[in-house]
């Protein structure tokens, strides 16, 4: 039951893009075409889940026992950068087709704030289930990270679909490009507000 709450809350209620504003750069940058949006979402999903697993273990088995929690930011970003590199190398070797699909998006992900954001949220934020606040355990963290990245994918793909339609319309000159995309995002965020209060 708890896992279901985490999943629904992460995908719909507290959508990482439209409610928490994490990962807005790829959201506005590579959402011109549906196919690139799908590729980016896949790569983000993969990296967020993996990096949250690693940073969670690092936080509770290295940083906390050594009392160097203040090194969190530096450690996490380095681990994420190294991880992205490693994923790229491994993927190239074992699954060239997946590498072809995700390849160009992987280097961009290091500076995607969604990855560092989720890694930091799971170790710092208290979640409330049934009235009792508690920190996420390992399994819950990974589920939360995976669900968040699914939420990222959902918002990304919906948005790319909308932008493909808008590209065919005549947009007033000052609105061309990012402004009309932001107006679209605003309406999409309003739609997602309908989920608030559900969990």
């Amino acid at each position: 039951m708890e896992y279901l709450i985490i999943i629904i809350s992460a995908i719909f209620v507290n959508n990482i893009l439209l409610a928490q504003f994490l990962g807005c750069c790829p959201f506005l940058g590579v959402s011109n075409k549906l196919s690139t949006a799908v590729g980016m979402s896949g790569a983000v999903c993969f990296v967020i889940t993996l990096s949250t697993l690693v940073t969670y273990l690092l936080q509770y088995y290295v940083l906390v026992p050594l009392h160097i929690e203040f090194m969190q930011t530096i450690t996490f970003i380095l681990v994420i950068a190294a991880l992205v590199q490693m994923v790229e190398i491994i993927l190239k070797k074992i699954s060239p087709s997946l590498y072809q699909a995700l390849g160009i998006f992987l280097p961009l992900i290091t500076t995607n704030c969604a990855v560092l954001g989720i890694a930091l949220i799971v170790v710092t934020k208290e979640f409330t289930f049934g009235g009792e606040p508690h920190m996420l355990n390992l399994a819950e963290s990974v589920v939360y990270a995976f669900a968040s990245s699914l939420g990222f994918g959902l918002a990304m793909i919906l948005f790319a679909g909308l932008r493909e339609q808008i590209a065919l319309n005549k947009v007033p000159k000052p609105f061309r490009g990012i402004p009309i995309a932001l107006v679209t995002a605003s309406i999409l965020a309003m739609a997602f507000m309908g989920f608030s209060g559900m969990v």
Partner: peptide, 22 residues
């Protein structure tokens, strides 16, 4: 209240960029 929440952020930024460009 929508302007304090997520949709207002996108909308306000969109119109500010348009005004800035104008």
């Amino acid at each position: 209240i929508a302007f304090v929440l997520a949709p207002g952020a996108f909308l306000a930024l969109a119109y500010l960029i348009v005004i800035f460009r104008k």
